[in-house]
């Protein structure tokens, strides 16, 4: 059964550490060229089609700024 996922990053609180991107098995996440109010390049879904909603990114996120969604298709 196939699954599809998506993440929502609290971009105001993201510190752009990149640990999520490094641990994303499907290269979904990258750090934005834009910065947030604190000057951090926040994480975002660069390749949203790749996301499986595995929760790895949220699991390792030190600032708990990632919410993960998943649907079976």
């Amino acid at each position: 059964m196939a699954v599809k996922g998506a993440i929502v990053v609290d971009t105001d609180k993201c510190k752009g550490c990149g640990v999520c991107a490094a641990n994303c098995p499907t290269q979904t996440i990258a750090l934005s060229k834009q910065v947030n109010g604190k000057g951090y390049n926040f994480a975002y879904m660069e390749n949203p089609d790749n996301c499986t909603g595995c929760t790895n990114c949220a699991t390792v996120c030190p600032d708990a700024v990632i919410t993960v969604y998943r649907v079976k298709i």
């Binding site: 599809k4 996922g5 998506a6 929502v8 909603g53 929760t55 949220a58 699991t59 990632i66 919410t67 993960v68 969604y69 998943r70 649907v71």
Partner: peptide, 10 residues
């Protein structure tokens, strides 16, 4: 996908 019923981690 981003709907409350689909949330798996928060």
């Amino acid at each position: 996908i981003i709907r409350p019923e689909n949330m798996v981690y928060a």
